[in-house]
């Protein structure tokens, strides 16, 4: 555990070093969020009655999504891991007394959380000062906020577990880039990254909510704004835990197969 924590610290101070990159990233997120909200406003003005969430809740959703981008975006994968698989350096990792899956999982977790912590506060503070309904609102209740934090972490772990599957497929395919792009697109769409899940037609929504992708950002962001509460919320959380367990189990399974393959083929 200690080695993972020191890795987290290392990443954190590395992240701090690139200050221009950090400022630029934060500015990007402001603009991105603002444009998204202006778009929703245009649709709201076109037909307010067709809006599935309140405008306020939608705006909070957008800002939260921007603030915690690093936790949930599938494109935020680690090139080093892909490279080490492709160029065979992975064999060195095998010499160390660490399970490859666990190490990469820890590494991705460290990367995503350190980045999110660095970046979330400016966005959150900025959007808190925007006039209602365009800014971020206070959480509906204390318990909603606590559940929000729990599901935020769960959601990030589900995302990481899914990305692990993508890393693992690289052991078996020549082109990781293609697989990666397809995976990224699917995740983005089905987790409500393009438009929030409530904006989809109802039948499709029902299906989407059962998929592992809905267990990523969707749950936490909607709990925060009160869009998801009560029994629905509990169901969603149970699903999150379910998918986390399933994805990790599959990932570990593939990992074992891949390690056998490396040992036999010599990398």
């Amino acid at each position: 555990m200690k080695k993972y924590f020191s890795f987290f610290k290392l990443r954190f101070s590395m992240g701090l070093q690139y200050r221009t990159a950090a400022f630029a990233g934060i500015a990007t997120q402001f603009v991105w969020g603002s444009m998204e909200i202006l778009m929703f406003r245009a649709f709201y003005e076109a037909d307010a009655s067709a809006f599935p969430m309140t405008l306020q809740a939608t705006c909070s959703y957008v800002w939260m999504q921007q603030a915690f981008l690093a936790l949930f975006m599938a494109w935020f994968m680690e090139n080093e891991i892909f490279d080490s698989i492709v160029d065979g350096n992975i064999s060195y990792e095998l010499c160390r007394p660490i399970n490859v899956y666990d190490m990469w999982f820890a590494r991705s977790t460290a990367n995503r959380f350190s980045r999110a912590i660095l970046r979330c506060f400016p966005v959150l503070i900025f959007s808190a000062f925007l006039p209602a309904p365009f800014g971020i609102m206070a959480p509906v209740s204390v318990s909603a906020f606590v559940w929000f934090l729990i599901t935020l972490i769960l959601g990030a772990l589900v995302t990481i577990a899914f990305c692990m599957l993508v890393y693992m497929t690289c052991f078996f395919t020549v082109s990781s880039l293609g697989v990666r792009m397809v995976a990224v697109s699917v995740v983005e769409f089905f987790q409500g990254g393009v438009i929030p899940i409530p904006f989809f037609p109802e039948k499709l929504q029902k299906v989407m909510e059962l998929l592992p992708f809905a267990s990523m950002q969707n749950v936490a962001l909607r709990i925060y704004s009160g869009d998801l509460a009560g029994v629905q919320m509990k169901k969603a959380i149970i699903l999150q835990v379910f998918w986390l367990v399933v994805l990790v189990a599959i990932g570990k399974g593939i990992n074992r197969l891949a390690m056998k393959k490396i040992v036999i083929q010599g990398g």
Binding site: K9, F12, S13, L16, Q17, R19, A22
Partner: peptide, 16 residues
């Protein structure tokens, strides 16, 4: 230049 450690990294954001 900057010294090692998270604190000085934080400082270097504002002053280099």
């Amino acid at each position: 230049k900057r010294d090692a450690g998270a604190v000085s990294a934080l400082k270097s954001i504002f002053h280099r």
